[in-house]
Design a protein around this nucleic acid. Structure first.
Lengths: 185, 185
DNA sequence: TAGGCCTAACTAACTGGTTGGTTGTTTAAT
DNA sequence: ATTAAACAACCAACCAGTTAGTTAGGCCTA
């Protein structure tokens, strides 16, 4: 293993940043803690990423890119898409937290280009599906996307007041898929 | 107007705390700012509420109590209930933010008694509705409650990447009510 | 005048960000 | 092939500004 490697160090910093920001948010995150987990000096964060805020941006962007890449989209089978979204966040709950922090702590910040572009392409795809009559026209494309996203992540966004009543992952997944099917029917 | 009145001061502090915590969360909130908005000295917060964390608890509890009181519940007409939830958070978006902060920044904290009790009573009501065949038995009571909550707040929990595509409040409300109807059908 | 209400002033601890210097790696002239 | 200069990666220690929390005492009203 090399002693010095900028790319490797950057990647370690990014991974540590995702972990810390997902757990504590921007204001709650501690730069020192990120450096410690990344196994490097704090000054490296500033050399590579500018400052705390820019480091958050870099971490969130990396997280979003990976999510978009892994989950994909399919207007022809929206229930299955919802199931994949559910699976992804069930496996990576920290990514959903990161996204929530972003929404709360960057209220006025201009939206991420990557997300805007992906949303547009998805809306287009949905509208094509509507013209082809394979997607319900009862809701607008934006509404549909919003509803599906909300349903797919419904469990993760609940306040933790259910405790033992929470069903198993299998049951929860089936509920998500079924709910989307009913929305589309 | 009285110059000195403990209850009045407490209420002002609580209102200022809700505002500040909703905007910035626990870690991001500044005690000095709360005191300034409340028009009193910082020491009063500590005299009345102990510390920053306990002040957040008090603020969130007050917010939840008011929400539960205002929105109510009705297992016999869940679409209308979802509409009321939508209306409430459309009128008080800060309350939803407060709730989200709570979920993010209090991951291990034991759930609020008030919410647990209300949830139980709602689950009971839903189950009675199922026995009386006025509520679908396709989903469990917990699942149903979770889905409805997610749908009712779906717009508020989206990341801000839609921009101008966001439909009007009327359209969004109708989508919520219709979606819940379809879930129940 | 007694006791609760209120404040200005203070402190100890923390935090994001910087700096000056060190160590490993590459380059290129000898 | 050597070696020294140039460069990039890295770090310990530090700094200035901020923050939660405290204290000692003034003020109002019953």
């Amino acid at each position: 293993m090399q002693q010095r490697n900028a790319d490797r160090t950057k990647a370690r910093i990014l991974a540590a940043a995702i972990e810390e920001f997902a757990a504590r948010g921007i204001a709650g995150a501690r730069v020192d803690r990120i450096a410690e987990v990344a196994g490097c000096n704090k000054a490296m964060l500033y050399a590579y990423f500018g400052n705390k805020d820019e480091l958050f941006d870099a971490a969130f962007s990396a997280s979003v890119d990976q999510y978009l890449d892994e989950v994909g989209f399919d207007a022809d089978d929206l229930p299955a898409y919802a199931g994949r979204v559910f699976d992804y966040f069930e496996a990576h709950p920290d990514r959903l937290r990161l996204s929530t922090w972003y929404r709360l702590e960057r209220p006025e910040g201009q939206p991420l280009e990557a997300i805007v572009a992906v949303n547009h392409s998805r809306l287009d795809e949905l509208q094509r599906g509507m013209r082809r009559r394979v997607v319900t026209r009862q809701f607008s494309a934006v509404t549909l996307l919003s509803l599906i996203q909300a349903i797919a992540t419904s469990w993760s966004s609940m306040n933790p007041e259910y405790g033992a009543d929470l069903p198993s992952a299998t049951v929860r997944r089936r509920a998500v898929v079924t709910a989307v099917e009913k929305i589309l029917s």
